[in-house]
Design a protein around this nucleic acid. Structure first.
Lengths: 128, 128
DNA sequence: ATAAAAAGTAAGGAGTACCTAACAATGATA
DNA sequence: TATCATTGTTAGGTACTCCTTACTTTTTAT
């Protein structure tokens, strides 16, 4: 199993590549406020797990497997955050912060139920 | 901050004392499937944090501070599990398993909203 | 072109949470 | 009472995730 930290980094790598086409180790260092050596280490671990291809200064590429993994996390994050905001009326910031932590431990089953619950709730509101 | 593991052990200590009046290190070892030395170590850390009083074979006592802490966790656990079962229709076992993990990372604010949401939902069902 | 800044790596350290093997103390029992 | 099982501790080890300090490599700017 991938750890919460590594999952966070992978998620960030994925999102950043989508947004800006590329990412460097230093970006992760800045985003998470961790030292450059810690990033190096984390990237080596992600590469060991075949989630990224890391060739030092030559750049960071995300593998197919890494994209799958990252997408799963992003989806969980999104559904959690939306559920908190739209159903529980939590403020956006708190919702995001908590989604970031819960996404690493919650089962897919609950995520799916949250999604369906939200969808049916919104449908009901349209009708009224 | 207390770690998820220590919080689990403290929760178990609290629940067991309520149920059976006393608890021994070996009970924790069996309950969580961790070695006796690991339990020793964890109990020393909990004692360092003034959450328990640990005097080896003389027994484990939970402090006032420890009870507060444990109660908070138990409450979070209960509300999460109930919310999953009653609102999201998750099966009891999955609900419990996930509550065990999420209770360590979720903010009080969301727990309170979950509780209120569930209460108002149940009230509405009574009326209909 | 060279000096300085930026980015990355290597080496070594710390804390947490586990482990096993071996030992000590306590308790039960034959 | 002597022995054996149970419980707990000590010592030493692993893996993870972070750190700092001190390098090297690359890029940038003068």
């Amino acid at each position: 199993m991938i750890s919460a930290s590594l999952e966070d980094y992978l998620e960030f790598i994925h999102n950043t590549i989508l947004e800006k086409k590329e990412i460097k180790a230093i970006d992760i260092s800045k985003a998470f406020n961790i030292s450059r050596p810690s990033v190096s280490e984390a990237l080596i671990r992600l590469a060991d797990m075949d989630l990224i291809i890391y060739e030092g200064r030559k750049g960071i590429k995300i593998t197919k497997k890494g994209i799958e993994q990252a997408k799963k996390t992003v989806k969980k994050h999104q559904i959690l955050s939306d559920f908190f905001v739209e159903i529980l009326m939590i403020d956006k910031q708190t919702a995001e912060k908590n989604a970031c932590k819960i996404e690493h431990v919650i089962d897919d089953e609950i995520i799916e139920k949250m999604k369906k619950y939200k969808e049916s709730k919104l449908k009901n509101n349209e009708q009224s």
